[in-house]
Computed example of a mutant assay.
Amino acid sequence: MTTALVRSTTFVAARSRAHGPTAALWHAVEVHRDPSEVDGACELTLCGSLARVSVDQAWPVAERDVCVSCVVLAG
């Protein structure tokens, strides 16, 4: 008997810090555990940045200051 494994990908929004001339952006973080366990923690984003997770903000965010790379990678 074969059992199909269904895997769903969950993304949460994370806010980076402004750094020098770089503006703070919203990024996507792929999580493999309950999002409440990572609330407020810094995580590696899809584009490779570190950003603080905010489970209050759904991904994709409806903001202008969103990381284009994360949008493409989460697509």
Rank of each mutant, 00 (worst) to 15 (best):
T2H: 04
A4V: 06
L5D: 05
L5C: 02
V6M: 06
V6Y: 03
V6W: 04
V6H: 08
R7Y: 01
R7I: 04
R7T: 07
S8Q: 13
T9S: 00
T9Y: 00
F11V: 02
A13K: 00
A13R: 03
A14H: 07
A14E: 06
A14K: 10
R15D: 03
S16Y: 01
R17V: 10
R17L: 11
A18L: 06
A18K: 14
A18S: 15
G20R: 09
G20W: 06
A23R: 14
A23C: 05
A23L: 09
A24L: 05
A24P: 04
L25V: 01
W26G: 06
H27G: 04
H27L: 05
V29S: 11
E30A: 15
V31C: 11
V31T: 14
H32Y: 09
D34R: 14
P35A: 11
P35R: 04
E37K: 13
D39F: 01
D39R: 12
A41V: 10
A41T: 14
E43P: 00
L44P: 01
L46S: 02
G48P: 02
G48N: 05
G48D: 00
S49A: 15
S49D: 14
L50N: 11
L50R: 14
L50Q: 15
V53K: 01
V53Y: 01
V53I: 08
S54N: 15
V55G: 03
D56C: 08
D56T: 13
Q57D: 11
A58I: 12
A58N: 13
W59Y: 09
P60T: 03
P60A: 04
V61N: 05
V61A: 14
V61W: 04
A62W: 07
A62R: 12
E63Q: 10
E63S: 13
D65H: 07
V66K: 00
V68S: 15
V68D: 12
V72G: 00
V72D: 13
L73Q: 12
A74M: 00
G75C: 08
G75R: 10
